[in-house]
Nucleic acid binder design. Sequence first.
DNA 1: GGGACAATAGACCTGTTAGTTCAGTTTCGG
DNA 2: CCGAAACTGAACTAACAGGTCTATTGTCCC
Lengths: 205, 205
Amino acid sequence: MSLPAPSSRRGRKFDQVLDGARQVFMTQGFEAASVDEIARAAGVSKATLYSYFPDKAQLFVAVVRNECNRQAETAVADIPRDAAPEQVLEQVARHIVGFVLSDFAQAVFRVCMSESERFPELARAFYDSGPRLGHDRISEYLTEAVAAGKLHIDDIPLAADQFAELCKTQLWMRAVFGIQTKFSRPEVDRVIRGAVDTFLARYGA
Amino acid sequence: MSLPAPSSRRGRKFDQVLDGARQVFMTQGFEAASVDEIARAAGVSKATLYSYFPDKAQLFVAVVRNECNRQAETAVADIPRDAAPEQVLEQVARHIVGFVLSDFAQAVFRVCMSESERFPELARAFYDSGPRLGHDRISEYLTEAVAAGKLHIDDIPLAADQFAELCKTQLWMRAVFGIQTKFSRPEVDRVIRGAVDTFLARYGA
DNA sequence: GGGACAATAGACCTGTTAGTTCAGTTTCGG
DNA sequence: CCGAAACTGAACTAACAGGTCTATTGTCCC
């Protein structure tokens, strides 16, 4: 009769469940993932699974929320404020590209987007913990750089997003569609160089 | 005993099936869509449906292929070659934004991407009929403009994609996640102006 | 050690799915 | 207006889904 406290008692099995669910949901999406498969992947029985989560939907939400948090942590990298804009931007670009092309970020993106109808709050969570976070970080830096006279930008929020967008050129689209999954260093460098050069052509001092 | 010729005899019912399947698949995705619902939406019995398509998967493929072709047609808009780059680019940008934000393109994108694991050939079809087609058109124009001395571009394929990417700034991401679905004219204008200005700052004569 | 109880596995239940079949009805060319 | 082909609608199967139940195991406190 008595359920174990659903969210307080988080033992070994709890993590196993979340982990198995992550594996399955992130590759299959919500509908296509079966609870049996999740239980199997987690090395746990269905009853155990259902003792921690009331239903499949809430397990899904928990998994994605978890991934979004991980994502937020990954995305937080400090920007060295003092270097020349060209160097700073290159570093930021490299970080963005690396993140955006990672299997992890792509899986989360894919799942959030395709289930954004069914679970709108997850799309929001993804956006806040990924794109929006990045946007805010870049905006902060740009604001400082403008104040220091290193850059000239009228519309900082727009510029920040433009830069992020430029970094994805040719890479992201191909990656999400599985048209090209691995990119060589020269390929990436070409895009990054292009992004920085174009950005600075417009906003450079 | 005798099946109707599966692909030659394409009567009224055939189109009804494809149409009903389009409605359901484009909103629900592959897994979540049930064949009964498709038949209902098509105003057709399941037996009829299965007389045209051997199974759900191939019906899905047919629908998406169809949508990709429609997409290709929509995307093909002639570029007025003679105007000044600023005007041409603005027009192209407006076209890109309009297309990218359309319910139609978003539905196709969403479905292709979330099923790209199960149906890799559809992801490819989408890419070829959308992003790649646009890329080729823009590249053509840029090549001419460079030859005419109106623009200075070293890496045309990269520049074409950069421009397309700049056009999506702030708009596309929010749209696919359902964070913002309608955009006012000023909002769009701001992005387009930003895209053209940034592009010309780098590549303008 | 022993009893109480949470944790667990796996069979089980109910509903739904894709896909098939078929007897009867509609449609339509000749 | 006839006959054949297209079509319907409902019943059917086999598989599988999410979720529950019961019987068993492991573990902690006295």
